[in-house]
Design a protein around this nucleic acid. Structure first.
Length: 552
DNA sequence: CGTACAGGTCTA
DNA sequence: TATCTAGACCTGTACG
């Protein structure tokens, strides 16, 4: 398959360097930016891989021009992956512009200038960087797995851009009715809605504080303490434990105030246009490999407002999420056959009960969460010895990751994403083994940091490998969806949302059943890609719905 | 007056 | 019968 490296030239032209499999240059084309769409569309007629500095700098404009790309190599994301992987000879990647590649930030402008002036990306040489990356990959002892990872990461970048382009269907009228029913009519700027005004009055009267601003945590804490309540913070969970006639109104105020500030009228004004909620998904935005997001709080859209996410007329959402992704991934990566046996069940925790490992589902869940997050106290800590006896390989894997982190070492996911190195004085000392008396922090301080980093690395291997499974699922699904329909991206079934282990597909109603089939097919393929023939299942909960809120 | 942080709440 | 992982983003407040 030919590769085409795209780069911007100083005079505003775009250069396309096409090379064959063996590395020989087949063609060199220069064209003005407004002809790029036509060029890419034409070259996409045959299998080709586009290579560019950063997907956010190229793909939104192509999508705007109605051009969809099958595959690419995102040099920014690939560089970041290879740079941290313990399976890569770092000297190969070192170059005079290595720092430039590391500093490169994705572009998330709301109105992207076609080619921004003074873009630091324009100082970097994509042909040279691609060469270094290919050399580093080929020389790696984990070339196969890393190759899969960088391909999936780049596919994710395409999917992310496509989701921002399409947007999540969102009905402002439904959202506004929800707000009005709960808060009252939209108030003038800077004023509280009627219901919050009413609750403020109740709170002030009940606690005898006529000037209290319930939005000020410090003032609220003082007022509650003056009223004789014993508390150290004003979190809802803390307030719920208290007996006082004013608590009800206070909790109600907090709930509605949160709705107003996070997803109220101004959220609608800012993030929903022409019936679509558009935010930026940032693949690789979290160190573990999970995606981050930018704009509108896309990864924490409250369940409360999801009724406003409604498919277009004649369209449906297919909402799919994988049940208990992380314990299943742990079973696969540790090749723990006993845990994989429990994972054969639709409910992994119930499977653990059925095998006699634990007595109740609640214990199974608590124990596994403790194993993956590092909970040592309370009930989850008490489960550990039994889980260790029953699932020695799975528990052993996370325990070893925790110990490595406590020693200041790098851990890695199944496909080879490396954890960051710890920062701070304890880390240097951990490598040193010197344990010299510390002038700054106490020994207890260092031990606390060490254990905290161990919890991070313990979770990193599981969360990170879970993210790899989800990335493979998403990448394969994206291609299967494309083949289900015809015409432009948004006239076919297409992805509109992705949240760690859940996808939302917007599809013409008559294709919804086919979408369910390919969503399941892609999940099975992701399992094969990561774990080969090892028998671990990834059952999906899938629903065909008109509103996102009706799923699950 | 702008920035940084604390406290809080939402997601998986 | 708990507080363990990763984030985004809001308001209020202290600081320079």
């Amino acid at each position: 398959m030919n590769r085409i490296v795209l780069r911007r030239l100083g005079d505003g032209l775009v250069e396309a360097v096409e090379s064959a499999e063996d590395g020989t240059t087949a063609a060199l084309t220069r064209l003005p930016p407004d002809e790029l769409g036509r060029f890419v569309r034409q070259r996409e007629l045959a299998p080709v891989r586009w290579v560019w500095d950063d997907t956010t700098r190229w793909y939104p404009q192509l999508l705007q021009a109605g051009v969809r790309v099958e595959r690419c190599t995102d040099l920014r994301l690939t560089h970041a992956l290879l740079r941290r992987s313990p399976f890569v000879d770092q000297s190969v990647l070192a170059g005079e512009d290595a720092a430039g590649w590391e500093a490169l930030e994705p572009v998330t402008a709301t109105a992207p200038a076609l080619f921004p002036l003074e873009d630091p990306a324009d100082l970097l040489d994509p042909v040279a960087e691609h060469g270094r990356q290919q050399t580093a990959l080929a020389a790696s002892v984990a070339a196969g797995r890393l190759g899969l990872l960088v391909a999936a990461e780049s596919s994710g970048a395409l999917a992310a851009a496509e989701m921002s382009h399409a947007g999540l269907p969102w009905r402002p009228d439904v959202h506004e009715k929800l707000l009005t029913d709960l808060l009252g009519p939209r108030p003038a700027a800077g004023r509280r809605p009627a219901e919050l005004e009413r609750l403020t009055g109740v709170i002030r009267a009940t606690f005898g504080a006529p000037a209290l601003n319930p939005d000020s945590p410090a003032a609220l804490l003082r007022t509650l303490q003056d009223a004789g309540l014993q508390l150290e913070d004003t979190r809802s969970w803390t307030l719920q434990q208290l007996e006082h006639p004013g608590i009800r109104a206070l909790l109600e105020y907090k709930k509605l105030s949160r709705l107003l500030t996070a997803n109220g009228w101004s959220w609608l004004d800012t993030w929903v246009h022409e019936g679509r909620f558009r935010s930026w998904f940032l693949p690789g935005g979290v160190v573990t490999g999970r995606w981050a997001s930018n704009g509108g709080g896309a990864l924490s859209v409250p369940i409360q407002v999801r009724p406003a996410a409604i498919a277009d007329d004649g369209w449906r959402f297919v909402v799919a999420d994988v049940a208990q992704l992380e314990p299943r991934v742990l079973a696969g990566m540790s090749a723990d056959t006993a845990m994989a046996e429990a994972a054969r069940s639709t409910d992994l925790y119930q499977g653990m009960v059925a095998s006699g490992a634990v007595a109740t589902r609640a214990e199974a869940k608590l124990g596994m969460l403790g194993a993956m997050y590092g909970g040592t106290r309370g009930e989850s800590g008490r489960m550990m010895p039994r889980l260790t006896r029953r699932y020695p390989r799975a528990i052993g894997l996370v325990e070893e990751a925790a110990r490595a982190g406590e020693r200041g070492e790098v851990v890695h996911t199944l496909l080879g994403r490396g954890s960051p190195l710890p920062t701070g004085s304890w880390a240097e000392r951990a490598v040193d083994l010197g344990e010299a008396p510390d002038a700054v922090g106490s020994r207890e301080d260092r031990d606390r940091h060490r254990r905290a980093w161990g919890r991070f690395t313990r979770n990193f291997v599981v969360q990170g490998t879970g993210a790899e499974w989800a990335l493979c699922w998403l990448a394969d699904l994206r291609n299967r969806l494309w083949r289900l329909g015809g015409g432009p991206l948004t006239e076919r079934p297409h992805l509109v949302f992705f949240l760690h282990d859940e996808v939302v597909v917007h599809t013409p109603e008559h294709l919804a059943e086919d979408v369910v089939t390919v969503v399941r097919g892609a999940a099975a393929e992701a399992g094969r890609l990561l774990f080969g023939a090892f028998p671990v299942d990834f059952p999906l909960d899938v629903a065909i719905v008109e509103s996102w809120a009706d799923a699950g």
